[in-house]
């Protein structure tokens, strides 16, 4: 998996839900949310590994697949991934208008602007 520079402090754990394939983030409650704003943020590399290990138990439990750490920065609205790839994943959809009949993902949340 692609990651940003090593040694970056702030990280969240992401995965895809097994059934739907949706992008999800590990929360402080120990479950998963579609919204990165709910993600638990690990502040050290060790905390990140601990968070990932706990989250990865849900792979064995057949809840999610492909867990990994994502480097983020903290903004007012919540964590924002450093990599564009992860910012687009966090949008829950592409940065373009799909099918021209659907609004772009998450325009409301203002995330689109943040991603581009």
């Amino acid at each position: 998996m692609k990651r940003a520079a090593k040694g970056h402090a702030l990280q969240v754990v992401t995965a895809n839900a097994l059934r739907s394939g949706s992008v999800v983030f590990r929360t402080i409650r120990g479950d998963w949310s579609l919204d990165i704003a709910d993600a638990a943020v690990a502040e050290t590399a060790e905390a990140g590994e601990t968070l990932l290990a706990a989250a990865t138990q849900d792979v064995a439990a057949d809840v999610v697949v492909e867990t990994y750490l994502v480097d983020v920065e903290r903004l007012e609205g919540g964590p924002r991934p450093l990599l564009l790839r992860e910012r687009i994943r966090a949008l829950r959809g592409p940065t373009i208008t799909e099918n021209r009949t659907l609004p772009p993902a998450s325009v409301e949340a203002g995330l689109l602007k943040a991603a581009c």
């Binding site: 895809n16 097994l18 059934r19 739907s20 394939g21 949706s22 992008v23 792979v59 064995a60 439990a61 057949d62 697949v65 492909e66 790839r85 687009i88 994943r89 829950r92 959809g93 592409p94």
Partner: peptide, 28 residues
């Protein structure tokens, strides 16, 4: 069997790929 947990992801992934199912950025 995958959804019930009988098959692990490692066992299942090659099977889904053989049937044209990829996991992409946002979804399958």
């Amino acid at each position: 069997r995958r959804l019930s947990g009988e098959l692990t992801e490692d066992q299942f992934k090659p099977l889904r790929l053989m049937n044209g199912v990829y996991l992409q950025l946002h979804a399958y």
